[in-house]
Simulated assay, not measured.
Amino acid sequence: MHGANLGVRASAHLACGGFPEPASAEDHALVAASAAGGYRVSRPRDLRVATSARRASRAESVR
């Protein structure tokens, strides 16, 4: 599971505190918080997602 392939309902995102501040793996932390909060987490093995292989970010860093 990676953040580029992650979908979360806004209400669940807010109820779980949103993305935490760890230096990395914030997507994993949000999924763990969602599961701990009683939200259903689905990890379909047959779903394929294509993401960019670029190494330079398109967005400015906010940290």
Rank of each mutant, 00 (worst) to 15 (best):
M1H: 01
M1N: 03
H2Q: 15
H2N: 11
G3Y: 03
G3I: 02
A4H: 14
A4R: 15
A4F: 14
A4E: 06
A4T: 11
L6G: 04
L6F: 00
G7F: 08
G7H: 07
R9G: 12
A10L: 13
A10D: 12
A10G: 02
S11H: 15
S11L: 15
S11G: 07
S11E: 15
S11A: 15
A12G: 06
A12H: 04
H13Y: 13
H13L: 13
H13Q: 05
L14A: 11
L14R: 12
A15L: 10
C16I: 14
C16M: 10
C16V: 14
C16H: 01
G17V: 15
G17L: 11
G17H: 10
G18R: 02
F19P: 04
F19Y: 08
F19Q: 03
P20V: 05
P20W: 10
P20F: 05
E21T: 11
P22E: 04
P22L: 03
P22V: 00
A23Y: 07
A23I: 13
S24T: 11
S24E: 06
S24L: 09
E26F: 14
E26S: 10
E26V: 12
E26D: 09
E26P: 08
D27A: 13
D27R: 06
D27H: 12
H28C: 15
H28V: 15
H28S: 15
A29H: 13
L30R: 01
L30M: 01
L30K: 00
V31M: 06
A32R: 11
A33T: 09
A33C: 08
S34L: 12
S34E: 04
A35P: 02
A35Q: 13
A36C: 12
A36H: 10
A36I: 09
G37V: 14
G37T: 13
Y39W: 14
Y39P: 01
R40F: 07
R40D: 04
R40V: 13
V41A: 05
V41P: 05
V41Q: 05
V41K: 03
S42E: 06
S42V: 09
R43I: 06
R43W: 08
R43F: 05
R43P: 04
P44M: 01
P44I: 06
P44S: 02
R45A: 09
R45Q: 12
R45V: 07
D46K: 05
D46F: 04
L47N: 02
R48A: 01
R48Q: 00
R48F: 06
R48Y: 03
V49E: 01
V49Y: 02
V49R: 04
V49G: 00
V49C: 01
A50V: 14
A50H: 06
T51P: 01
S52N: 03
S52E: 01
S52Q: 02
S52W: 02
A53T: 10
A53V: 13
R54E: 13
R54S: 11
R54D: 03
R54N: 08
R55C: 02
A56L: 05
A56Y: 01
A56D: 02
A56T: 10
S57E: 03
S57Y: 11
S57L: 15
S57R: 14
R58Q: 11
R58E: 04
A59E: 01
A59V: 14
A59P: 03
A59S: 10
A59W: 12
S61R: 15
S61V: 09
S61C: 05
S61P: 01
V62H: 04
V62M: 05
R63M: 03
R63W: 03
R63A: 05
R63N: 03
